[in-house]
Structures are given as C-alpha cells and as structure tokens.
C-alpha cells in the first residue's frame, strides 16, 4: 500500500517579495499571463521602482519574484496551499492514515462531479486569451500589433529546441510562406506564416536561450511581433483561427489526431489513459518525429 496519499499534489507558486501582501499565483499562470515579473521590462513595475528606484538589474526576471513549492489536496473542495517546508511529516496525507480521510473516501464512492474548467487540455496548457492558428502558432493582439508564438502542443512535439531562426525586423511575411525554423534534437522544422504583414519585433531573448519556448511558450518564449497587413485582423475570426471554447475542442481533437498519425502495426488504434509521455523523442524514431512535424506544424494553407 502507498504510504502517502495519491491525491497529495505539489505545485510551484510565485509571489512578489516587494509587495506588502504575499499574494501567491501558480507559476504556470504567471507564464500564461505574460506577467511583467517574468519579462525584461519588470523595471517598469511600480512596486519594483518603489523598492529599487531606477537602478538597473541585469537579471532577466524580476529579482523580487520568489518561487515556493506548496502542497495541497487535489480532491478537497477548497484548495488550501501549505508551503512544502512547513509540512509536518505526521500529517495524515503523508502516512497510511490518509485512508480515513473523508475527501479521500469520496473517491472511494466514485461520485465525482465533472471537472471544472481547466487551463490544461489533455495535459497541454491552453491560454484562453490568445488566438490559435491551426499550425500551432498562437497570436495575441498587443496595441495594434500581433504577437506570435508557438503553443504548448507545438513545443511538446518539437522537443528540445536548440536554435530558432527568426525573420529580420522590417521583413515582409506572407501567409503560407516560410516564416521561421526550429533546429531541434531530432531535426529541423520549418514553419509557415499564418498571415501577411511586416515584422516589427523579434524576441531577442531567444538568441541566448531558445529553451524559453519550451519552458514558457505563451510568455517569455514568444517569437515575433507583426504589424498585420490590411484586412488581416478580420481574418482572425475566420475558420483557420481558433479562440476560446473552439480552441479547446480543437486541441482535444489534435491529441486524438496523434493516435491517427502514429499508426500501429494493426492500423489506427485509440489508447485511453494517462498523460502523454513528456519525452516524445525517447519513444519515437526520427522518421516518426518528422511525420508528426509535417502533419501538425508544417501544414500548408487550408
């Protein structure tokens, strides 16, 4: 028997050391919101300025950002976070006594209401505030411009990104034509542009550290900013782009599509169970990897 409750979960929470109240946010969420704390311009943050004045820090993330591990019960109706460091060893959750816990026993009856909204769709992070192109590029409006990045599913497929080749600032990009290249452990992927426009900004941080795309695809790992050509913004509401609940169901279907593509000896099978293996490369031949990249990321128009 397990000596620790299987529903005891650990999560990384972030908070601001300079702010008078300790307000904790899941680190994942901070990434999703493209929080100032994680960007180079955290020096613009009023709390930072108040503490540090105009002094410049060489760090890429805010020096006042603190990350702490907390422990909570996944099934208890109220999510109560306890710092991992304060957790007592004789707590029922960490001993065999978890069996008698009422929250745990509810599972025993098998009556669980359908899960509430989740930021994860079949194991992948989905940012509800961006548009998705079907080639797994996300787009977000930022003062008249569009910021583009690779979604979580896309970065998972690529695996370890060693280098990204971005277009030049001021360059013209054309829908369906090559936009950028990812050099990865398994090979190179060439991604087409989802729209027409002019490149007005690129993420310089990726030159030093392209793993930001893997770590924080919707935040620090953004790719470039584009001034869209006339009429392009209106296209965001068309079929090729997805938003909100449409994006959710599309992502769910993309995961199923993986099973279609990864045909087995006995044709297409559907496997039902746990999460996708974190390290796709380890279970897949380079040829299969190439096929997946072609199917999901290098898709041509239509």
């Amino acid at each position: 028997m397990e000596t620790r409750c299987p529903f005891l979960k650990e999560e990384r929470m972030a908070f601001c050391k300079a702010f008078p109240i300790k307000k904790m946010l899941p680190l994942d969420r901070l990434y999703l919101k493209d929080s100032l704390c994680l960007r180079g311009d955290y020096t613009q943050c009023p709390t930072y300025r108040e503490k540090k004045g105009d002094m410049v820090s060489g760090k890429r993330v805010c020096p006042f950002l603190e990350v702490e591990s907390v422990i909570y019960c996944e099934v208890y109706p109220i999510k109560k976070m306890i710092p991992a460091s304060c957790y007592k060893l004789e707590c029922p959750c960490t001993t065999e006594a978890y069996i008698d816990c009422p929250a745990y026993q509810k599972i025993a009856q098998g009556d669980i209401p359908p899960a509430a909204e989740a930021v994860r769709v079949r194991g992948f992070l989905l940012d509800d505030t961006v548009y998705y192109h079907k080639g797994h590029i996300w787009l977000q409006r930022v003062d008249g411009k569009l910021r583009l990045g690779l979604d979580d599913f896309g970065q998972w497929l690529l695996g370890e990104i060693k280098e990204v080749v971005l277009p030049n600032r001021g360059g013209k990009i054309i829908s369906g034509r090559p936009l950028l290249k990812f050099r990865c452990a398994q090979g190179t992927a060439e991604i087409s542009s989802p729209l027409n426009g002019i490149v007005v900004g690129i993420n310089e941080g990726l030159r030093e550290d392209s793993s930001l795309i893997n770590i924080d695809p919707y935040g620090q790992g953004w790719l470039l900013e584009v001034r869209p050509a006339k009429g392009e913004l209106a296209r965001l509401n068309q079929e090729e782009f997805l938003y909100g609940s449409n994006a959710r169901s599309w992502l769910e279907k993309e995961v199923d599509r993986l099973h279609y593509i990864l045909q087995t000896e006995i044709g297409v099978t559907m496997g039902d169970g746990g999460n996708l293996s974190r390290n796709l490369q380890e279970v897949m031949a380079p040829r299969q990897w190439g096929l997946l990249i072609k199917t999901f990321l290098e898709r041509k128009e239509g």
Partner: peptide, 20 residues
C-alpha cells in the same frame, strides 16, 4: 497494467473501426 509508448498508462485501447 497496460501502456502504449506515448501514454504513461492506458485503461484500454481499441482499433478504430476494427475488430478488437
């Protein structure tokens, strides 16, 4: 306990539009 390579475990697996 069953698995397929891309998933950590499976409750089950079936051929889509197949026999088993």
């Amino acid at each position: 306990d069953l698995f397929i390579p891309i998933l950590t475990f499976v409750f089950g697996e079936a051929q889509l539009g197949g026999k088993v």
